[in-house]
Amino acid sequence: MDPIKVIEIKKSVFADNDQDAALLRKELKGKGVYLLNLMSSPGSGKTTTLIKTIGLLKDSLRIAVMEADIDSDVDAVKIREATGIRSIQLHTGGMCHLDAEMTRQGLDNVDMENLDLVILENVGNLVCPAEFDTGAVCNAMILSVPEGDDKPLKYPLMFSVCDMVVINKMDVLPYFDFDLDKCKKYIRLRNPKAQVIPVCAKTGEGVDVFAAWLLEQVKSWKQQ
């Protein structure tokens, strides 16, 4: 008798997460809460962009923010102090990304009945968060000028899962070899549907365009 028996499993490691995410998306639809999953590298200006965006939208939409980080609550505190909206901090316990189950646990801590929009600020990382569906209605990312225009080539999955790419820190463009047209071309190679909005979160330039896009997204999704 063979000392080893083989049991066939044939299961994708991501199958359960994909299922959880689909279920969460359905529940969010039922409650009329739009979940935006915002991703980027560390230091691209996610929190600053969010503060400016929320400032423009908080009279039109009821918004909450979930901050995901490996440790600390600096981002959640910063958002709360700057905008006055509800913000909670999630700790990933050393993990480099959030999955659908962690997202659901976070949502259990916000009052979903009185919200239109929840923005999930994912862990700063261009690799892992792209792999895991969080259950969000839409994935967006922020790329900043100092990171370079070649990032869509180096991190193809991130750019193929995002339908909105915000290019931040446009004010420092003269000091870097960043070619905006080239970057747009690389982004569209990965995702022909992706929209690109250049902004400067520090001065607020272009943030109104992003805020208007988000408002329209939430409104049309609610009417669907």
Binding site: M1, P3, K5, V6, I7, E8, K10, S12, F14
Partner: peptide, 12 residues
């Protein structure tokens, strides 16, 4: 791009 558990080997 698959990350799949194909099978497990266990004592018979």
């Amino acid at each position: 791009n698959e990350v799949e558990i194909k099978e497990i080997e266990v004592p018979n």
